[in-house]
Design a protein around this nucleic acid. Structure first.
Lengths: 338, 338
DNA sequence: CTTGGCACTCGGGAACACAGAGTGCCAGAC
DNA sequence: GTCTGGCACTCTGTGTTCCCGAGTGCCAAG
């Protein structure tokens, strides 16, 4: 039922609608794409496409507009991801290479992506789950307080102040630190709980209460950091687009809800491939009318987290997907190198 | 020329306009505030106020609207900061008390302020300048790399990976760490440069190149962190307000420009008092139509940074100022306690 | 299966009138 | 001198009507 020409018509509708932001009619198609047939023929095809649910008309007798289902077909079968230009690639590379630490990498990435796609960019901090302990540090602050600093191989640093149950001097702290590091060095974060389970037995009896306190804070830190931070940038692009029939407000609200964002980016968990979620495919009702293009990134084959952009359903998918893919790759490189 | 009744009229106009979002006419004033005079009298007063530039009419024969100058007079002489309710105070207190680290404090503060004022909240991270070194840590990563961790008394932690000019073993690192801490413990961050100036002479000759490298990174960190981070929240409130004749986009852009934000919050530097900048008083052209209410906060009398909210010129100044002041105080308390 | 022709349907813009809110001004009252 | 009621005037915003044009669906012929 859906032959090649009908697909070509659908493609034409998507492309024209994306570029003009106006419903596209049969005549416009014959003019801009030479399919070698007359408007009447196109109309017949469009009638079929509409019946199938790929396109719709905003009002009787206006041009056609792709539906979410239409965009879906377009993304899946009718478009090719458009690679970036050489200049763009170089710009990305040099921009990201200037980053000094993890925070900076994430910050630069999100801004870059926003600028590149002229959309709202979203970047999840690398998940701690797959990373490894590089070093644990105990810093005495006062005689009843130490600061626990946890450094992972992704360059991430978490710190926590701990109130100790008793006064303890520096040499004992130093000993605890040594034991902790001996245990945990190189340990995957998700294995930390098992690894430290028997640790209290490996310190002098007098130190056990302190060790227990420290461990409980350490474990708590791991759990808490598990709900990861997400940052976004480029909200101004939303306002500029001018689309969003209604609900720029809803979109902004969603962006500030870490949990919602997380679900949007993260549900398709472990793939590094590009995933696209279009309009109503999207679980959150406030985000009808918006699509999400996301990809995983991470160092050394292991996926750490996801990044992507959020924009109106009416977006240029090939270009956007190209940008997201490229940025994901470069960030992965940068993280692997550092 | 501007007698008491005229001021009362101005106050009435500001209050009514803020609450109704519609130009207010002479009749409305006599109805809602009993000034004991007739509409005609009010009209005469309004004519004078308009001539002086305190109010304006959007079109001939519509009601009056306060000008920026009118709001200014209102804020300076006609309004009193409105304290929060007891319930609100308690809510603030418990919400902020739950914070686990500096990042968390800042994050909670900005969200709290946004929710409380239903406006965009902006919080500057505590300036490093006035804080002191609590601990410097050198963590060996590989034999040519160490991580420098700088912990300050505000709970802030900065870290940097350093590539060393030569291979160096752990005992030498430990020695360097000890020297560094001996030098710097308790040292004000702004005094660090002088303090470490002669430090290379206090280590064995063989360690001097390494020490120099580390110091240069340390100083660099101080400089870089000096341009402080700013976070905001509540952008959705902007869209909800529906005001902003034109330029929600401009506002969003400004919010993402750290530099602009910094100037908005920070120009009135060292006072802990509440400062209000109204519409055109504001240096940035994209922010005509928006006002900023800001206050300094910090631990123990020393001001560390600023926080505030940004909203339409047509905002409820007394309430907003009350909220900003309260939040600034509580954050200061929290920081002082930790 | 494609094409040209044709009647039909809406949306959106222009022209217009109208009600209502608010003003400015003036002459008279306190 | 200050306040007040009255009155004419000036706008904006809204609702109505009308018309144009783009685009469609259908049909009959190639």
């Amino acid at each position: 039922m859906v032959d090649d020409r009908k697909l070509a018509v659908l493609r034409a509708i998507v492309e024209d609608y994306v570029s003009t932001n106006e419903p596209v009619g049969s005549k416009a198609i014959t003019e801009r794409h030479n399919l070698g047939v007359s408007p009447a023929t196109i109309r017949n095809d469009m009638a079929v496409l509409e019946e199938q649910g790929y396109i719709a008309q905003p009002h009787t007798s206006a041009g056609r507009v792709p539906t979410d289902k239409g965009y879906r077909l377009f993304v899946d079968r009718l478009s090719q991801i458009k690679p970036l230009s050489g200049a763009e690639r170089r710009a990305i590379e040099t921009f990201l290479a200037g980053a000094v630490d993890l925070d900076d990498v994430v910050m630069r990435t999100v801004r870059l992506l926003a600028q590149l796609t002229r959309q709202v960019a979203v970047v999840q901090y690398p998940t701690i789950t797959h990373s490894k302990v590089r070093h644990v540090e105990l810093v005495p602050l006062t005689d009843r307080r130490v600061m626990l600093v946890l450094i992972t191989n992704t360059g991430r640093v978490d710190q926590r102040v701990i109130e100790l149950p008793e006064v303890i001097d520096e040499t004992r702290i130093a000993h605890l630190r040594a034991v902790l590091n001996a245990c945990l060095d190189g340990c995957g974060l998700n294995q930390v709980p098992e690894t430290v389970a028997d640790l209290p037995e490996r310190v002098p009896a007098e130190d056990r209460p302190v060790a227990a306190t420290i461990l409980s804070v350490l474990l708590e830190t791991l759990v808490e950091r598990h709900d990861e931070k997400i940052v976004f940038a480029g909200a101004a692009n939303l306002a500029a687009a001018g689309d969003f029939t209604v609900g720029l407000r809803d979109v902004l609200e969603a962006l500030e809800e870490q949990v919602v964002l997380m679900r949007l980016l993260g549900e398709t968990s472990d793939t590094t491939a590009i995933t696209v979620r279009i309009g109503s495919e999207n679980p959150y009702t406030g985000l009808r009318g918006t699509s999400i293009v996301a990809a995983g990134y991470g160092s050394g084959g292991k996926q750490l987290a996801r990044l992507g952009v959020l924009g109106p359903t009416r977006m240029d998918y090939p270009v956007t997907m190209g940008a997201v893919r490229a940025v994901a790759r470069y960030v992965s490189q940068i993280l692997a190198a550092s």
